[in-house]
Design a protein around this nucleic acid. Structure first.
Lengths: 210, 210
DNA sequence: GGATTATGTTTCACACTTGCAACGAATTGT
DNA sequence: ACAATTCGTTGCAAGTGTGAAACATAATCC
């Protein structure tokens, strides 16, 4: 078992392994070798072993991995055994869509509060979730024990929101605003930039070589 | 000007340059050097010049780049001067949210049709967009001259949708289903996997080192 | 006990990207 | 004319991730 720092690419692969293992578990498989896993899901067996070995010895030599055990281990490593309380800042189209997003609702992330600065929205409900004034973010976030923030405001306001959110002590932030943000060192910021993805498609379509 | 193949990382940076240039244009700047651009937006001046040089000589030695000209050039390179007609497959929460997403509506991507297999949804409208039966995708896609498809269906159906979409001759696909897909060589597939991003945050929160 | 299987681990080569430095070429300003 | 600026281009070092191979270790099967 190594004790190096874990690359984000590694944890991303762990997510993928977990999905594959879940699929095998649904099919009733009890054990699986890194080789079978690799061939079935087009992965690399050596890398699977390397990645898993970062976190412990989960496999059994001569046998492989016990599917249910590995699933539990991966869930634990990825922190999917603990619940998180999510606030979404920005009750616009994207924010309201994310509130209902099954990726949140089906996982260990519970959206418990929305924030906006629009007085017409404050006090309303999106589904079962209340919309609060972003001016009272600190107070409300503490009351709801928020530990994850999702930024769904227009780009020019995103940095301000991130600063405010960080001030309250929230350490995990997902940003959907199409702009790079500067976060404090101890804050994990994950930006999902759909604009770049779209423009990448657009570029491809514009190329005559296609 | 090089004629090598362009890496996707390069085009992603072009998207970023375009944003920066747009910001400068809004502020009224007429020219900018790669050095100023780099310092202002925390980029690398040599890389800016290298990236731009892949597509032509847009700068003027001793002067820098003309802001408006560079903006137009970048838009043209990224294909943002031509409109695209988008179909969204899957009229669930994510699909309907994307239909209204300003990233689409504010860009050169027009969402012109939704598809689903649920009879209760077929025939309805999401905003101004009709929901069609996915069974008639080929016919309807041709009629609407769709050239971009967005997959917003549950993971188990995503590959089937991609195959069907490819059969119709659509070459650009954006996939929101949390599963890797196999696309034909001439089809550009861009997968946005929010689950992996979420689990990455979850992992971070689970680490005692944080 | 011996053969087989498959992990945990190390090692190496390869590819890719990035960042830095350098330099000729071209333009502007004095 | 000359200095200053800045692009276009090249080369190189550093870092990172990937892929394949190899091998000791350990469990299972016969």
């Amino acid at each position: 078992m190594k004790v190096e720092k874990i690359s984000e690419l590694t944890t991303n692969r762990l997510s993928i392994y977990l999905r594959c293992i879940n699929e095998l578990a649904r099919e009733g498989d009890k054990t699986v070798s890194s080789d079978k896993l690799a061939k079935r899901f087009h992965l690399n067996s050596a890398q699977i072993r390397k990645d898993l070995a970062c976190f412990g010895e989960f496999g059994v030599r001569g046998v492989g991995y016990y599917v249910e055990d590995l699933r539990d281990q991966l869930q634990k490593i990825l922190g999917l055994d603990k619940n998180h309380r999510v606030a979404i800042i920005g009750a616009g189209r994207l924010g309201t869509a994310l509130t209902d997003y099954y990726g949140f609702t089906q996982s260990n992330f519970d959206v418990v509060a929305l924030f906006d600065t629009d007085k017409d929205k404050i006090g309303e409900k999106i589904g079962t979730v209340d919309v609060f004034s972003f001016g009272e973010f600190g107070k409300t976030a503490k009351r709801y024990e928020i530990d994850v923030a999702v930024i769904a405001v227009p780009a020019p306001f995103a940095q301000g929101v991130l600063d405010e959110v960080s001030k309250v002590g929230i350490k995990a932030v997902m940003n959907f605003a199409p702009t790079p943000l500067k976060a404090a060192g101890d804050v994990k910021l994950k930006t999902v930039d759909l604009t770049i993805s779209l423009e990448s498609l657009s570029y491809f379509l514009a190329q005559p070589s296609s």
